[in-house]
Nucleic acid binder design. Structure first.
Lengths: 222, 222
DNA sequence: ACATCGATCTGAGCACTGTTAAGATCCGGG
DNA sequence: CCCGGATCTTAACAGTGCTCAGATCGATGT
């Protein structure tokens, strides 16, 4: 306990850590700003010099945590081998996504749920980008026909995200990480096979826009 | 205002209605039990004679609302025509699912998020069952090979749920209901095509279990 | 060396929340 | 007619997010 100084010095980060620990212990909503402050050893109102509201804390935490998800996805694809079958790489990415969520359900729930409000934050590497790059490899390798590439990210993302959310919300149950991997594998392969055999779109699709890519738009034509 | 009696008589239902209205107005979490009670014209503690906690209210509301989702899915498939192409029916079901969510995002978020804790409630018709029945039709019609039928519900469900959640959480944006329909259409067709061209599983898959079907298990072998 | 300034943190306090306990009120059955 | 039990009320408790006036401190300029 020795050196408790008046000025904490690292309060912002310490609050984020404490909040994350509390989320892990008691669920995405089972904690209070006061509790996090107390755990850091600081008065409740001190937090308001670093976050404008509890919600701001939650959003900041969400950013950190989503960045880790992006790293995890990138690491999973990298571990699958650089030159190997790009489909295998995508499967690895999918397993990484879903397992990340299942291993820390409360944190994942907070991270996913906080995306709703406010401007899309700058997260690096952004999960969306990692997925995007991997899909580009797939069309490059000829596994995914170019006409089906547009918006394919959203189809794959939806399937993965759905599986993750169903699992962390307890709507579907799977025993053990390898069962999770197996299900993620099946989902990714099914979606990708289906996209590959899609008839070419009759006319231009109305493109979905992700909150992330929207942030850096501006010069692209409407 | 006339007949304000001491005993409300219909308080449980009235509270559910008030809560749903509040959710619609102010978001899934932007309301309090006290507020719902006040809106009904009743003291805060009166609610505790009908719901053991605020959480119980939320779960009960979630049940009502999920039952409406089930009805909507059933209605959508029915509207697609009884004898028509079962794939078209499934697409209609998927559009129903996703559009139900986007049309009332806050209510949908509450309904989906409340599934986590407690025993799976008895909902009729349960969305899971409606989807299940439709997939059976697909294998019956030969569109989906029988070996791929096992667990296919979870793959389709994941894709639909993921799209719905991405939309209601604002992570993906689509303009207008027909863009939503089109995306749901694409997702359903992709997943189903992919499942249809799946190689037969080398050995038995570890079956996922939904919280709903689990409720009525018991006599099936472990 | 020293005053001072701005950033950082404290303490008290407000309006509000979920929840409980003890009492008022009313409906239906003896 | 009266009374039991269901239904609702009032009062209160601890805990919440948040604000604001002041205390404390590290760094800066002279």
């Amino acid at each position: 306990m020795g050196k408790r100084r008046y000025h904490h010095g690292e309060l912002r980060g310490a609050l984020l850590d404490a909040a994350e620990a509390l989320v892990r212990e008691r669920g995405a909503d089972g904690w209070s700003l006061r509790e996090a402050s107390a755990r850091v050893g600081v008065s409740p109102s001190a937090a308001y010099h670093h976050f404008s509201s509890r919600d701001a804390l939650v959003h900041a935490l969400s950013e950190c945590v989503l960045a880790r998800l992006g790293e995890r996805m990138a690491a999973a694809t990298a571990a699958a081998g650089r030159g190997s079958d790009p489909l295998r790489r995508l499967v690895a990415l999918g397993c990484g996504y879903v397992r990340w969520a299942v291993e820390d359900p409360a944190v994942a729930r907070l991270a996913f749920g906080a995306g709703a409000t406010g401007p899309a934050p700058a997260i690096t590497p952004h999960p969306h980008d990692v997925l995007d790059a991997e899909l580009d490899r797939l069309v490059e390798a000829g596994t995914l026909p170019a006409p089906s590439r547009a918006g394919a990210e959203f189809v794959v993302w939806a399937a993965l995200h759905g599986l993750a959310v169903l699992l962390i919300d307890g709507l579907v149950h799977l025993d053990g990480p390898q069962a999770v991997d197996q299900e993620a594998d099946r989902v990714v392969r099914a979606v990708l096979n289906g996209l590959a055999q899609e008839p070419p779109p009759p006319r231009e699709r109305p493109a979905p826009r992700s909150a992330h890519t929207e942030r850096r738009a501006g010069r692209s034509a409407t």
